[in-house]
Design a protein around this nucleic acid. Structure first.
Lengths: 102, 102
DNA sequence: TTCATTGTTCGATAACAATCGAACAATGAA
DNA sequence: TTCATTGTTCGATTGTTATCGAACAATGAA
């Protein structure tokens, strides 16, 4: 299985993070990871195709919002809280809090 | 001159706000309005065409990030701080603070 | 080995977004 | 009235994004 690329903390870009979280599906993924902890990709597929979800996870990963690690046949996702907090203090919390109001 | 539409405070949508601010030019516009106060559209045109800038201001307005008012031949822009703070507490500040680091 | 599970990748399509120049509209000054 | 200033709108182009289904890959269980 191929290595998954993750941006370093310092190379996380604000516009890219905002763009990643400006999609309702991806915002929902981040919110779920926030309140329920690490989860495999399959947990989220409601109505969208698997390939669609895979795409959204990739966007979040490349933007530096989540890390992904393969475990068996699953792919676990983790919010990069510490990295985001260090790079953009208060940003993730503000967005997740705002996302609750939906 | 046509009436400019502005969304009500309650109808401001988080994904739309994040999308509006995920563009570097629009993020820069918001940052300038934040630190320099209300400014006419013309203040910002660096390299982009007038029509391009006009488009970006419209995106910010329709997302609820700014208000626009015509004064003479100019169009003044104002950050909707209070509305954004009421709807999404801490969000705008966090984004603007993060944007300084560029 | 065979099969089910879980994701990823690929190719296609359709929708959306950024950009530009040209034409237009509104204002205010000469 | 005429002109310069300031923006907006329109149409076109180019590029990006979201979405799907089909094919593929990796793992682990039977």
């Amino acid at each position: 299985m191929r290595e998954l690329h993750h941006p370093t903390r310092d190379s996380i870009s604000l516009p890219q993070v905002l763009h990643a979280l400006s999609d309702p599906i991806r915002l929902c993924i981040a919110a779920q990871l926030d309140c329920r902890g690490d989860l495999p990709c399959g947990t989220f597929c409601e109505t969208a195709a698997k390939s669609t979800m895979s795409h959204h996870f990739k966007v979040l990963r490349l933007a530096g919002v989540i890390t992904q690690r393969n475990e068996g046949t699953s792919c676990f996702n983790t919010l990069r809280r510490d990295d985001l907090e260090a790079r953009f203090p208060g940003l993730l919390d503000a967005i997740l809090r705002a996302a609750e109001e939906l």
